[in-house]
């Protein structure tokens, strides 16, 4: 149960810690101190409240739309994360629109936190209820598992933050920006999977199977899945969506004409 707790927590919590690192980089890179202790506490409390709310209502949500409620609601959330991340990516070099960027970052953080956090809360509440009925020793492994997983996530997030900060300053100024876009692509891929799972989007054959090289259920595969939206068995739709969802924002950000029109600058 210890290993299972660690793996489940990693699966749910890693995206939350990674998005914190990525969003912090968006704002510290511009030397605007938006992340204050007061803001952090407020935002964290709001996020935890959302997680609890979602956890309480998820059973009813699952019964909506003829049993497809969870998939439709969650995929909608992932799609919003993607679009907010794209806007944040496009607004990268702008010293204006600070309030807009703050709002986008807040939405991304709250959605990532609540969608992933509710998943782990379900496991936690279910395991807690069962363990209390049977034995107390199981709770020990639960807490130890959570502590271990938090340690792994925090370590990785800090490492990622400083690595990307170094890369932004010394290698390429938009490294963290692109990683945010890749993270958003990963969320979009999840939404497609969910919609295919309930037949809202058409199912199709997998184009290839790279499980022999990088298995999706391995630790490295999970990490690639969160960071880049890695799929060992992607369908044609996933591939086309991934490429389009990456190329279009990149082309838009490099198109000076579009940038001027979009941000109301005189040509």
């Amino acid at each position: 149960m210890l290993i299972n707790t660690v793996l489940l927590f990693l699966q749910s919590a890693l995206p939350m810690f990674i998005i914190i690192s990525l969003l912090l980089l968006r704002f510290t890179a511009e030397s605007k101190s938006i992340v204050t202790p007061k803001n952090l506490i407020g935002i964290t409390c709001l996020a935890i409240t959302l997680v609890f709310l979602l956890n309480q209502t998820i059973e009813k949500i699952s019964q909506l739309f003829e049993g497809k409620g969870t998939e439709i609601v969650f995929s909608f959330g992932f799609i919003i994360i993607y679009f907010c991340s794209v806007f944040l990516f496009l607004l990268n070099n702008k010293d204006r629109f600070i309030k807009v960027k703050q709002a986008l970052a807040l939405v991304i953080f709250l959605l990532v936190f609540s969608l992933n956090g509710s998943h782990f809360m379900l496991y936690l509440s279910s395991y807690w209820t069962q363990t209390l009925q049977v034995e107390s020793a199981g709770l020990e492994s639960l807490f130890i598992g959570i502590i271990l997983a938090v340690g792994i996530c925090v370590s990785f997030a800090i490492l990622l933050y400083f690595l990307l900060r170094y890369s932004d300053l010394n290698i390429h100024p938009k490294t963290s920006c692109y990683l945010l876009l890749f993270f958003a692509l990963g969320q979009l891929m999840q939404s497609i999977l969910l919609l295919q799972q309930v037949d809202v989007l058409p199912l199709s054959y997998s184009l290839w199977n790279s499980s022999n090289f990088i298995a999706e259920n391995s630790e490295f595969g999970q990490l690639l899945s969160v960071l880049f939206g890695y799929e060992a068995t992607p369908s044609f739709m996933q591939l086309i969506t991934y490429l389009t969802a990456f190329i279009v924002p990149v082309l838009m950000s490099n198109n000076r004409h579009f940038v001027r029109i979009a941000f109301g600058e005189k040509s």
């Binding site: 699952s62 998943h119 379900l122 279910s126 209820t129 799972q197 309930v198 037949d199 199912l203």
Partner: peptide, 27 residues
């Protein structure tokens, strides 16, 4: 109790609540 149907081979993951049914499409 809650269970989660999970399959890396099928690329499917779904939470199934107590005394309820869930539907997944595969293939």
């Amino acid at each position: 109790s809650v269970e989660e149907f999970d399959s890396f081979d099928l690329n499917r993951e779904k939470v199934i609540f107590p005394k309820q049914k869930s539907i997944i499409f595969i293939g």
